[in-house]
Amino acid sequence: MKVLKTQPKSITTEGTKYCPGCGHGIVLRLIGEIVDELGLREKMILTAPVGCAVVLYDYITCDVIECPHGRAPAIGTALKRVHPDKFILIYQGDGDLAAIGAAEIIHAANRGENMSVLFVNNAIYGMTGGQMAPTTLIGQKTTTSPTGRCVKGMGKPIRVCELLSSLEETKYLERTSVHSARNINKTKAAIRKAFVNQINGIGFSLVEILSMCPVGWRLSPRDSQSFIEEQMTDYFPLGVYKDTD
């Protein structure tokens, strides 16, 4: 028998509290693999968001700070200024980054902080039970948009990569997805690039990852994958938005 993959060493063995079919778990695994491959575990400081990934420190065995909702880019800025030689990983959800923390991410990006940001966009507030997020699609039903999000009064979903791409100090922006094996592989390559950029001192890198939230979406795990394939990627096109290395 040939061992193809093992559990990444930097990931704890207890398992996560993510729901079945959740995209966060896939992103976690990818982080673990890349952290192992690049030997980053003992050099890194991770910021945990407020959202379903809040207890990331239970899953990854590295130094972690749990941030107030949306403030990770400010905290990460200070961590990097104090420890320029350490690897700073910012992990945020869409409510965290694009709603309450919109100012912090825009200004960290604008300053060109040499950090790697993983932005997990599941178009919903997962942790609080499925409320509308700034990334919720038009027509998408949530507990606070029960008849579906409408443009009038709620605006259109925010496209973070496009928004940040106008800031000249952002160096690498890519949108990927974890709804299929092929896309997971692409996501891994993108995360890796964002990490390597920081190590090489390139500057601000962000990977926006479209991610399933079956529980918040009230869909089966399989239908959640289709929701990304058929609807999310339509409004949030996958691809590289900025690459200036």
Partner: peptide
């Protein structure tokens, strides 16, 4: 030393949180 004019007091205090957590006087 590190001087940074933050985008708001909200960001400034969180930068303080980060620097304190990193182990320096802030």
């Amino acid at each position: 030393l590190v001087f940074l004019q933050a985008e708001s007091e909200v960001a400034a205090i969180n930068m303080v949180f980060g620097a304190a957590a990193a182990g320096v006087r802030v």
